[in-house]
């Protein structure tokens, strides 16, 4: 742990957690995140409740230089991983492979490429200008959530286990009951879908494409 207490402008971490207005806002954000990961209101509420309790117990020892919110979200992510491990096998193989809607799960991906496997002119990735500047923009996160939401549910779920909960592919495979190859296929699909969605709804929105 860090030896410097960074209280910033908000007072001590303990005081932040004790402020009902801040706690309510934190709770709302946590619940939104947990619901997205777990796809289950009751489980999400449990995870958030447990995380907040752990934070309240641990806050006296917390002296990190990261924002309180980042720290609390770290606890929440661990709780979510615990729940996924405990409950496991909640995602069925067939739904992960994406055939529940009766459509070819690879159709969206294939549509980006010509038959020879090269980019269609309209889908060739364009350069993104200064992506880090978007991080401070509230509207960017709204678009990002909408793009996540736009992915097939279980594709999004595997993506989030990998990129937000930090599980490795071997663990995801065993939790979800798919092969390593399927895991790579799903992650490729998820990343390509998200990339395209962010590009057309945020980074290159309405601009002339010069590729």
């Amino acid at each position: 742990m860090n030896n410097v207490v960074s209280s910033g402008t908000m007072g001590s971490p303990a005081a932040e957690l004790a402020d009902p207005r801040l706690l309510a806002a934190l709770h709302r954000d946590m619940l939104r995140f947990a619901r997205l990961q777990l796809r289950d209101q009751a489980m999400a509420e449990d995870a958030v409740q447990e995380a907040i309790e752990a934070a309240l117990v641990g806050v006296a020892r917390y002296a990190g230089d990261a924002a309180l919110k980042t720290w609390v979200f770290g606890i929440l992510r661990n709780k979510i991983v615990d729940i996924l491990r405990r409950g496991a096998k909640t995602v069925s193989l067939s739904s992960v492979l994406g055939d529940e809607e009766g459509e070819d799960p690879d159709a969206a991906l294939d549509a980006l490429f010509r038959t020879n496997g090269h980019w269609q002119a309209t889908s060739r990735p364009a350069a993104w200008a200064a992506p880090e500047q978007s991080f401070e923009n509230k509207q960017f996160w709204v678009v990002f959530e909408a793009c996540l939401d736009h992915l097939p549910e279980n594709v999004a779920r595997v993506f989030m286990m990998r990129e937000m909960l930090g599980l490795d592919t071997a663990e995801i495979c065993s939790e979800v009951g798919i092969t390593t190859n399927n895991c790579h296929v799903i992650l490729h699909r998820a990343r390509t879908g998200l990339r395209g969605c962010l590009e057309s709804n945020w980074f290159v929105k309405g601009e002339c494409r010069t590729c």
Partner: peptide
């Protein structure tokens, strides 16, 4: 952009997305 996507995701997972009413 794959590298950016990873940064975006981990930033999001760190709770950095802003609630419109959140003062933080």
């Amino acid at each position: 952009q794959m590298v950016w996507l990873r940064r975006i995701s981990s930033t999001y997972a760190g709770g950095a997305f802003a609630d419109p009413t959140a003062p933080d």
